[in-house]
């Protein structure tokens, strides 16, 4: 699924400079615990989270997260956005809750992992 499509599904706004809407997202992972992202997310996933601090960007870089969606209208500060720009990680903000964000994306076919990922 293209990030552009995810943006449409979630009525999201893109808040980073990275013009990465053309990238292909195969997997999604949702968490507010960064250690869980490190332990359980799949490479090249979309991260869905409430957290907006710089550690989310660092964690995403380390875990090879391709893009981040902040739910519930939460926005990171300028420094955090700049950090993401430097790492070329696109940032999106949606007004949907975590539950609704995940539900909408799942409904459209996005999954956390495929059978072959296990």
């Amino acid at each position: 699924m293209k990030l552009e499509e995810i943006k449409e599904i979630l009525g999201a706004v893109i808040i980073s400079k990275s013009d990465g809407l053309d990238i292909n997202i195969m997997r999604a992972y949702c968490a507010d615990l960064m250690s869980d992202v490190l332990a359980f997310s799949i490479t090249n996933s979309l991260l869905i989270t409430h957290l907006t601090n710089a550690q989310v960007i660092r964690t995403s870089e380390v875990a090879d997260i391709k893009a981040i969606v902040f739910v519930q209208g939460k926005r990171p500060d300028i420094e955090t956005i700049a950090l993401a720009d430097g790492k070329r990680i696109p940032l999106l903000v949606t007004d949907f809750s975590m539950f609704d964000t995940c539900g909408r994306l799942y409904e459209k076919g996005l999954r956390s992992q495929s059978d072959t990922d296990f």
């Binding site: 615990l33 250690s35 490190l38 989270t49 601090n53 550690q55």
Partner: peptide
């Protein structure tokens, strides 16, 4: 901040 959940050392070991 999303840390301190007690998964640090177990994650390193893993």
């Amino acid at each position: 901040m999303g840390f301190g959940s007690g998964m640090g050392l177990p994650n390193i070991k893993k």
